[in-house]
Nucleic acid binder design. Sequence first.
RNA 1: CCGCCCUUAGCUCAGUUGGAUAGAGUAUCAGAUUCCGAUUCUGAGGGCCGUGAGUUCGAGUCUCGCAGGGCGGGCCA
Length: 566
Amino acid sequence: MRDNKTILIEKTAIVLAEKGVTLSQTETAALFEKPSDPKLGDLALPCFKLAKTLRQAPPKIASDLAPLFEGTEGIARIEAVGGYLNFFYDSASCLSVVEEILQNDRYGSSDVGTGKTVCLDFSSPNIAKRFHLGHLGTTVIGNAIRNLFDFCGYKTVAINHLGDWGTQFGKLIYAYKHWSSKEQVEQGGIDELVRLYVTFCNQEAEDDALKQAARDAFHLLEEGDAESLEIWEYFKEISLREYQKTYDLLGITFDSYNGEAFFSDKMPAVVDEIRSKGLLELDNGASVVRLDEENMPPCLILKSDGSTLYPSRDIAAAIWRKNEYDFEKCVYVTSAGQSLHFAQWFSVVRRMGYEWADGLVHVPYGTMSVGGEKLASRTGNVVLLDDLLAEAVRKCGAVIEEKHPDLDNKAQIAEAVGVGAVVFNALANNRIKDSDFNWEDALSFEGNAGPYVQYTYARSASILRKGGEPAGDNTGYEPCAEETALVGKLAEFPETVARALAEYEPSIVSRYLLAVCALFNQFYHNCRILNAEGASRIFRIKLAAATHTVIGNGLDLLGIRRTEEI
RNA sequence: CCGCCCUUAGCUCAGUUGGAUAGAGUAUCAGAUUCCGAUUCUGAGGGCCGUGAGUUCGAGUCUCGCAGGGCGGGCCA
């Protein structure tokens, strides 16, 4: 079908040239669009823009052009409607799309990224804190974008930039030494670390000496004190052990866990570099880079006490990563609230003379709230990710128990569907939109939701199990409306992947999958597959196989497990 | 005060370079299975696309003003 488009573009260029309008290949291609309603045709040529140069009414242009396209390869019918010229592909091209998908398990993938490396900085939780809803966005969006890059041939480096450094570790170490023990931490895990931190913060409010004690403890850690380092390593290990369980459940892996601690000793050199390039200015004791030209407030590099800040760390990390990975792009998936921060330090890197700053990309996403209130550990207004996932799995288990009690691997399937539902939900809307969490909606798996996609996938798998190999000769078969509509949508998968990647927007894939599922279910409902006969049966099984491939690849991209059975 | 983002059906949201009658899900109501998995499918009602101008043959989409909401704005990250 995409071949048909190419043919049409070339033909159009010739036809228009006869009319005295010469356009380049890309200009001609830009004239085409997909009809709003597939019933109108497979491809449309709006003639409004041509009206100016041809000095004729668009409807007249359309009807004049129509006969000139007679006999174009792959085109069955041409209709001039209003100012539009609508093209209908013939059934042979419909069959060939299905064959193309069957020959390629990785249908939709490309090699545009071959030889290029992309770093993706996402998830990045703070050590010794619970993984909550606020981390879900960056984690699943980042992972999906990583998958998209992989699918398009890029080499990807998934980086979990851990929040594993800072004065809070002074507090934790102090609290651990005075109020806890290895046994208690071993028992309680992160919960115990959180308890220690909260306890310290409460005490600290009433006791100034504690504040100093925390600073001293962190200073000791920075100096490389063996005992402090050991405790710090231990906290990190305890935390990662628990995070890993969540990542395993989500099917997410990282290539690097280099976090703030890793870069702590790499910042002085970078600050010196900024200074030597004449960018650093003193302002009220702090060192800043002015960004007046960019119409932004100054970027703070050093506090008045000489210690570094968030931007300095990101700049140091970016430079290190560029040297280490020679990335084409470095993508940061964080909340939209940090947009200014990223715009500022991207600018600083550019002012440092690094042209690769253009490859730094901030991918923002909307704020998640609970009950209309900000997420806040302090006030207890949080929903832990583990709790949400566990509840989703439990609910799916209950549904399976009720509807398919004989199913094998019930536990695994409940897990796949429950976790998948949460992930799909997080990836279904444009990432920039804010959202408010409530349990009812989060666990509502009806309609446009993950289970619908997984169910449809399982349904197509079931057809394939029962129908045998999707093979045989179906030449000359005339597909019905449901079939052509589904094939048309399947053929859009490659461009859908490309657009999702270009916009760093996984929801484009999610919504595409919902559309595929709707069309497959309509096809399934209206067309007999297994007890059809001859070419019809052959084609329909192939179509089920092609749908299976596309939905499967789509689920892979979103980071949702495939379910051959539900 | 300044900057960025958001505003489309009762609710949650789509709407790709400006194009044909603004679409899904959900909720409400009415239907469909002798047959491949009913977590399915069909139909109905539901809209001054926040508001006012402008550009254009054509604006949900682009520009500007305004309103409402969210998030930022030098020593947190």
